[in-house]
């Protein structure tokens, strides 16, 4: 894989330096079959240092999860070696299947097949609460 020239795929850019492995793990990139490059501590004019992840396939990516980990990230969509779309992620209003509720009194603790959903209740302090029991995510 030539990490500079992707024909079809995604470039996850402007990752806060040090966050690349967290994203790799939380989004389950270890399960992907395609080539993936993790580039750490790249010099950036804007950020000083940043991480970049390049994925050699147009996979469906969980933008909510990305926004939750690192709201400044951009995702470049590459088709035919051309940049066709630049997606900006933001702190998402809702999170689906990203976090698990740890409240033992929550219905999701006994019914494991329920989807895990959280909502942003305090943007300033980045507080997410479980939609079922309103317990704070931590």
């Amino acid at each position: 894989m030539n990490i500079d020239s992707i024909k079809e795929g995604l470039v996850i850019d402007h990752i806060t330096a040090g966050n690349a492995m967290r994203i790799y793990n939380l989004l389950g990139f270890d399960k992907l079959e395609c080539s993936i490059a993790i580039i750490k501590n790249v010099n950036s004019k804007k950020m000083g240092k940043k991480d970049i992840i390049k994925i050699d396939s147009n996979i469906d990516i969980n933008l909510e999860a990305l926004g939750y980990i690192d709201p400044g990230i951009t995702v470049d969509v590459i088709r035919d070696s051309k940049l066709v779309e630049k997606r900006h992620v933001d702190l998402p209003e809702t999170l689906h299947g990203v976090l698990r509720c740890k409240n033992p009194r929550c219905i999701t603790s006994v019914e494991q097949e329920l989807s895990q959903e959280f909502m942003l209740t305090d943007r300033e302090n980045r507080v997410y609460r479980c939609v079922y029991c309103e317990a704070k995510a931590n």
């Binding site: 929550c106 479980c130 939609v131 079922y132």
Partner: peptide
């Protein structure tokens, strides 16, 4: 009525 929080929402 349910002992677990969030059951009626489900």
């Amino acid at each position: 009525r349910h002992p677990k929080e969030g059951a009626p929402l489900v």
